[in-house]
Design a protein around this nucleic acid. Structure first.
Lengths: 338, 338
DNA sequence: TTGTATGCGTTATCAG
DNA sequence: CTGATAACGCATACAA
């Protein structure tokens, strides 16, 4: 029963085209008519039906956002950044949760297509060939956030952080602080960017430093407190010579590890140093405060959204990978050795 | 250039009405035709344009979600719960961030109306008369989550937790544990449910217990670590006789308070007990583990979404306020006195 | 500068 | 059971 453009036209005694023109001021309309139409519009609180507009303009001003977990702090910050730029440009976001499952990701890609959204920001876990194929078939642009494509570079535009370099830097940082026996407690193997790539950075650094560690110094667990706790437990139980430092794949993993160590009466950082990843808020609430590498997720979301907008407006066409800078934050859980 | 229902009809040699019928199986279609149409649909990967469908059916299968802060853990859990039931029922959520500002809330309500969404879940800060009026004018149903209407009860359907009772219970809990000098360090006055109501519960309990406290035992701050830290500082500085326990408006406030106290060399819970609110994940990561009152936000979101769906399907019409149960969780920051 | 007519992709009404 | 055809609410090419 909402008022339509036709109602306005009739009441103002003009044609619907004229009303349409004053709404979008797409073509010149005489001041008097414009004035009259505006008044009627105000009076009736008329606003155009976005569905009808979208049907004809092929533009909905909606961008889809696909994340593995809505309630995860990392994706919360990311989504906030995305929404920040989207809403300021007149776009509304449609947030979807994939659980990190390929099937649901594919399904969401289709649902968003049916809804005629203008573009999607995709935070996946492993952007494989199947996903890439699907994305390329869609008639909306997609930019990957947080996660790179695992099959080929620069096929799909990407905004993320350099996971390899970040872990490389962390290991170097620890080494500069006198650590030699450095263990790795990171995310799962199936997670391409946050699992595999970080591990790669760790290995790369050790190799350059000509440090070799036993297999039992490397644990790949879930990105959770529990994962960190249990992974640290395994490292503890399987090594007679413990590491002096542990690099982790997330702050959650890190505090899980610290908690396990403390439970064994092992002091952090007195006996073992631990360093996180992400720099979530609670990293500073924790005691001792967690040393970590900060990833600016909010900014990453902003940049990715801006990038997507460029594609949507057609001002950009060729894909590239954009890295936002990370930064090592020294706080209380890393000790200077020697 | 997407394939339309007309393309399918032509290729299958039937009318578009028939195609529409097999898609929605709204009317009987002969098995052979149905089969033929299905094949063509599969072959062309046809899926109906949701915009066109919505334009005529007046149903978009989209529900709007308005929250003050997307990256806040409380709203993260809430949104996850909402999405959980929405997505399982074929709805997609459109998440909007209001910053808790009235003007943006009003604006979002309008934007969502233009988009013809089917209903909205609203998490506000103060649902006042202006907001209520606006909501009632909309042609979609809205249910309040997390926050009650501040002007009149049962005007708008609400799913929340009993903030008055929760704080009442917390004070009683502390009293049963021997505490008499109980301070309040809660959220801001302008926040109706989480600020005012919680304070009300605190006062109600003290009054029943016939305990009177100085004004300086009551601090209303932002729902943040910083707010808690500074509020605790004021309580500390303005009282020569310190409280033995502090009830707070959120876990974040609570740990901010603990952090301040620790900085002053005051042990928690040895000298002062502190109890949080919400029960976020990090409450158990913190040391000592934070005692708190658990609010099941995820479930709250689920229930609110289900409630909204009832309205959308017309199976419910009259508003009510639904409370999800809270629960006091004893952990490390509350000491048994006497 | 203004109005008319057509179409966007579906569903729904009404005949057959 | 099937098929024209009229909406849905708006934008736009084409006329005037």
């Amino acid at each position: 029963m909402a008022v339509t453009i036709a109602d306005i036209a009739k009441e103002a005694g003009v044609s619907i085209s004229t009303v349409s023109r004053v709404i979008n001021n797409t073509k010149p309309v005489s001041p008097e008519l414009k004035e009259r139409v505006y008044r009627i519009i105000e009076k009736n609180h008329f606003t155009p039906n976005a569905l009808a507009q979208g049907l004809i303009t092929k533009k909905t001003n909606i961008v889809g956002v696909i994340v593995p977990d809505i309630s995860n702090a990392v994706f919360g910050a990311l989504t906030k950044g995305i929404n920040s730029v989207c809403s300021s440009k007149g776009y509304t976001i449609m947030v979807c949760e994939s659980g990190g499952e390929l099937e649901r990701e594919m399904n969401l890609l289709n649902i968003l297509e049916d809804r005629q959204i203008d573009g999607v920001l995709f935070a996946g876990v492993d952007v494989n060939q199947e996903l890439v194929n699907a994305m390329q078939k869609k008639d909306y642009p997609v930019v990957l956030v947080t996660q790179e494509c695992s099959v080929k570079e620069n096929i799909i535009d990407t905004v993320t952080h350099d996971n390899v370099q970040a872990l490389y830097d962390v290991v170097m940082f620890l080494h500069e602080n006198g650590h030699e026996r450095i263990a790795y407690l990171g995310g799962p193997e199936y997670d391409f960017s946050s699992g595999q790539k970080r591990l790669k950075g760790y290995k790369k650094a050790l190799s350059e430093l000509k440090i070799s560690v036993p297999y039992s110094y490397i644990e790949q667990v879930q990105f959770s407190f529990q994962g960190g706790y249990e992974g640290m437990k395994r490292i503890y139980e399987e090594n007679s010579i413990l590491p002096t430092a542990v690099v982790t794949g997330s702050d959650l993993i890190a505090i899980g590890a610290v908690q396990f160590l403390n439970g064994q009466g092992i002091g952090v950082p007195e006996e073992i140093s631990v360093i996180g990843f992400d720099d979530l808020d609670f990293a500073t609430y924790f005691r001792p405060e967690l040393s970590t590498v900060r990833i600016p997720y909010f900014e990453e979301g902003e940049i990715a959204a801006k990038e997507l907008l460029k594609y949507m407006t057609g001002s950009k066409t060729k894909a590239a990978t954009h890295y936002v800078p990370h930064k090592i934050i020294r706080r209380g859980t890393v000790k200077v050795l020697k």
